[in-house]
């Protein structure tokens, strides 16, 4: 072997070699083995949630097709490009470490952190939009952002009752005339298919079992006071077609889990950047750079699958 590896350097010049390892090469092999085992675990970890996605998509293909329209393809594509570029800068960082170019190493690590931050900023903009429109997971999906401007201005409350979780109740200013047809049009215009709309105000007189049900959960929305005040108000119960709340549940679970990995990646990159500045790394030893790089590429890898599955469903 012509390259100077840790093995050939005298022991005193290997301050990075921990005492419980036989040699620098063994230390590196152990670290890498551990990293690959961790990555293998990550694959299966994310695989579970991809499997959930597959099952939901199998049972509710229409839901996937209609609900994904609310995701912005340009934003997703931009984030894909950002992550791929960050993977390149990470690879260049490792490349620099291999050549012992410490300044290039630090510069590329910094670039990678910056791109990771850019990814999270785009993600924040997307999330903010979803929150604003009420396109959220499970019981939190109200989709009130799909109402037209007039309806939105007069909307007083959009909520779900746990007793009828399939329906979203929209309560409008009592003086404002809202019709079922106008609501249907508004949701239709925003590609939010509706299965049923009923006026809920007249029907929301509470029966004894319903009251018992509401008391059992005792959530704020199930407060009998809320139920009682429905009478005479301008309330509609909307049942959306398909399972948009499950799509957005998957969307947030998958992207937030991935986003958490990005955040952890940024911390790890910062840690490696600091160690590089401290002079911990040399051509003979840069295993942490390599391992953080492996982690970062896996984050990119997962996004490569998330992007077409969530944003580009056809």
């Amino acid at each position: 072997m012509s390259k100077p590896t840790g093995d050939q350097a005298p022991l005193l010049q290997q301050p990075f070699l921990q005492h419980h390892f036989h040699s620098a090469a063994q230390q590196e092999a152990s670290a890498k083995l551990g990293m690959w085992l961790f990555l293998a675990q990550e694959l299966v970890f994310f695989g579970g949630i991809f499997l959930a996605y597959g099952a939901v998509r199998y049972f509710y293909p229409e839901t996937m097709l209609s609900a994904h329209e609310h995701l912005s393809v340009p934003m997703g594509a931009l984030n894909t490009a950002v992550l791929i570029t960050s993977s390149l800068t990470m690879a260049l960082a490792v490349h620099a470490a291999q050549r012992g170019a410490l300044r290039a190493l630090r510069r590329n690590l910094l670039l990678t952190v910056a791109l990771a931050g850019a990814f999270l900023v785009v993600k924040y903009v997307e999330y903010a939009h979803k929150f604003h429109d009420g396109l959220l997971a499970g019981n939190y999906l109200t989709a009130h952002g799909m109402l037209d401007d007039d309806q939105g201005a007069r909307l007083q409350q959009a909520f779900r009752l746990r007793a009828s979780p399939e329906q979203v109740h929209f309560r409008f200013d009592a003086r404002y005339p809202v019709t079922r047809e106008a609501l249907l049009r508004a949701f239709g215009a925003h590609k939010m298919p509706v299965r049923a709309i009923t006026r809920a105000d007249a029907a929301l007189t509470v029966s004894e079992p319903q009251l018992a049900h509401a008391r059992a959960f005792n959530g704020a929305l199930d407060d009998p006071a809320v139920w009682g005040s429905q009478a005479g108000s301008n309330t509609f119960a909307v049942t959306f077609a398909g399972k948009p709340h499950i799509f957005f549940g998957l969307y947030f679970a998958m992207t937030a889990l991935h986003g958490l990995h990005v955040l952890i990646g940024m911390l790890l990159l910062g840690w490696v950047w600091r160690r590089a500045g401290r002079g911990d790394f040399s051509r003979a030893y840069f295993t942490p750079v390599e391992n953080v790089g492996l982690y970062w590429h896996l984050v990119d890898l997962i996004w490569i699958f998330l992007f077409p599955l969530l944003y580009l469903v056809r």
């Binding site: 399939e166 809920a200 029907a203 049900h213 119960a237």
Partner: peptide, 9 residues
């Protein structure tokens, strides 16, 4: 329990 709440009278 919701059947009564949704069917219009």
């Amino acid at each position: 329990p919701e059947a009564g709440a949704t069917a219009p009278r």
